[in-house]
């Protein structure tokens, strides 16, 4: 198993792999719609165009029972993905996703079109996750048996499942199977405070523009940029720590310590 000489070198490896992944995943500007013959492989329902969303909204308001279902289906993957990245707990993510979709369903009559539908739904998602994290934080700080694992962030989520690089100590084989790189990134993201995590998820994972993030978080664009920079700085620090930790774990497995 590869041992990392130093965190920076490991991150260079991470970056090279991610660059390759990004190139493979990003569609070209002239590409036809996804999930068609010859197009990019899509494992979920394709995102609806804004026009199609408006059409479905109109159809839903006109009483079409299929329109709402199609709308929610198109968003379930995105909402679930955001929830997972925010709370790092599949069971809670599932519950939160259902909460979000129900809120969307019940709130569609009041949706006034001032923001894009996607922005509105993502706002509901982020607010739901942040509320949940706040509740978890309150529970953790109130608990007499708080056994923090040494994280500096009191917003640190409960134990990550193995599929996302859980906080429990993974065996060397498990790390290799998951991909140590992915583990480090997931853990670093999970270790940030909620606001920092949210803004990185919105910007990098969900690929929103500053203006959209501003509408989701309901703060000015300037504030978005400041928070984003600070979140990046926090993530950098967290990633360096995770890579060092992983290389330390790998070293222990091999019976040696890394420098």
């Amino acid at each position: 198993m590869k041992r990392f000489a130093a965190p920076d070198a490991a991150i260079d490896d991470l970056w090279q792999e991610a660059n390759l992944i990004s190139e493979m995943q990003r569609p070209t500007s002239a590409s036809p719609p996804a999930d068609t013959a010859g197009g990019a492989v899509s494992t979920g329902p394709p995102r609806l165009t804004p026009l199609r969303e408006l059409q479905l909204l109109e159809q839903h308001r006109a009483g079409d029972p299929k329109a709402l279902s199609e709308l929610l289906t198109s968003y379930q993957r995105r909402v679930y993905s955001i929830c997972c990245r925010m709370v790092h707990d599949p069971e809670r993510s599932r519950d939160l996703t259902q909460d979000v979709l129900l809120k969307v369903m019940n709130g569609l009559d009041g949706y006034d079109g001032r923001a894009k539908l996607s922005t509105w739904i993502i706002r509901i998602t982020i607010n739901t996750c942040l509320s949940d994290l706040q509740k978890q934080k309150v529970r953790q700080t109130a608990s007499l048996d708080d056994l923090s694992t040494g994280s500096s962030s009191s917003d640190r989520s409960v134990e990550l499942p193995a599929s996302m690089g859980g906080q429990r100590e993974l065996s060397g084989a498990e790390v290799v199977e998951l991909g140590e790189r992915r583990v480090a990134v997931e853990r670093a993201l999970g270790g940030l405070d909620a606001d920092a995590r949210a803004i990185l998820v919105l910007r990098d994972v969900q690929d929103l523009e500053y203006q959209q993030i501003s509408e989701v978080l309901e703060v000015p664009v300037g504030t978005v940029k400041s928070r984003l920079f600070r979140a990046r700085a926090s993530f950098r620090t967290a990633l360096e720590q995770e890579m060092a930790r992983l290389s330390g774990t790998a070293g222990d497995e091999m019976g040696t310590k890394t420098a």
Binding site: A18, Q76, R94, D204
Partner: peptide, 26 residues
């Protein structure tokens, strides 16, 4: 390094919900 971090985060794949997830909401 933070530029590279951005690429890493952008490469995180979406996470698929469980199959028939919406069935519970139907």
């Amino acid at each position: 390094a933070m530029r590279r971090d951005r690429v890493l985060l952008q490469s995180l794949p979406p996470i698929d919900p469980p199959v028939d997830f919406l069935a519970e909401l139907e």
